[in-house]
Amino acid sequence: MSLKTRIEAELGVPTRLRIGHPGSLDVIVNGRKIYSKQKSGHLPAPDEVVNLVRTELAGA
């Protein structure tokens, strides 16, 4: 299951993954950047991103 599909299936929120130059990955939910590989310096585990999205939704 892709990261996008997992977020949408588990949390029911439309999600966009933006993949740019090699090594670049942003996860965008509700128009907000939830995760940036460039900023964090590492490729996230799917659970890490799902938890970040869950936290973002709880604060919205």
Results as ranks from 00 to 15, higher is better:
E10C: 03
E8M: 15
A45Y: 10
A9Y: 02
I7M: 01
S36K: 10
L3R: 02
E10R: 01
G23N: 14
E48C: 08
P44T: 08
R18P: 07
K39M: 09
A60I: 13
T5F: 00
S24H: 08
Q38S: 13
V27H: 05
H42T: 09
A60V: 10
A9G: 07
V49L: 05
P44F: 14
R6A: 06
L57G: 01
P22W: 04
L3W: 00
G31I: 10
A60L: 11
A60F: 09
R16T: 08
R32I: 14
K33Y: 13
L52C: 03
G20Q: 09
P22I: 07
V13S: 07
R54E: 14
V27S: 05
L11Y: 05
L25I: 12
G20V: 09
V27T: 06
R32N: 15
K39G: 09
K39P: 08
G41M: 15
K4Y: 00
G31P: 14
V13T: 09
L25E: 08
P44H: 12
I7K: 00
E56P: 01
S24Y: 09
G20L: 10
V50L: 14
R54A: 06
S2F: 00
A9L: 11
T5E: 13
R18N: 11
G31R: 05
V13L: 11
D47N: 10
L11A: 04
M1E: 13
L25H: 10
S40R: 11
K39Y: 15
E8I: 06
Y35I: 05
G59Y: 01
R32M: 15
E56C: 02
P22N: 08
T55M: 05
P46H: 09
P44I: 10
R18L: 14
I28W: 03
D26W: 08
K33S: 13
R18H: 06
R6L: 15
K4C: 02
M1L: 12
G23Y: 15
G20I: 11
Y35E: 05
S2G: 02
S40E: 13
V53S: 01
K37D: 11
S40M: 12
E48N: 06
Q38K: 13
Q38W: 12
V27K: 03
P22G: 07
I28R: 04
K33R: 14
I34Q: 02
S24V: 11
S36G: 13
I19G: 09
G41A: 11
I19L: 11
M1I: 10
P46K: 06
T15S: 04
S2Q: 03
L11F: 05
L25V: 08
D26F: 07
E8K: 04
T5P: 01
P14N: 08
R6C: 05
Y35R: 06
P46E: 07
R16F: 01
H42F: 15
T15F: 00
R6N: 06
G31N: 10
T5W: 00
L25A: 12
L52Y: 01
E48H: 09
G12D: 15
E8N: 06
L3D: 08
L43W: 13
R54G: 05
T5R: 03
V53I: 04
V27A: 05
G31C: 15
P22T: 10
E8S: 05
P14M: 06
V53G: 00
K39R: 10
E56F: 04
A9R: 09
Y35M: 08
V50C: 04
L3A: 07
R54V: 07
V49F: 04
R16M: 06
V13Y: 02
S24I: 12
Y35W: 15
G23I: 14
L52R: 03
D26T: 08
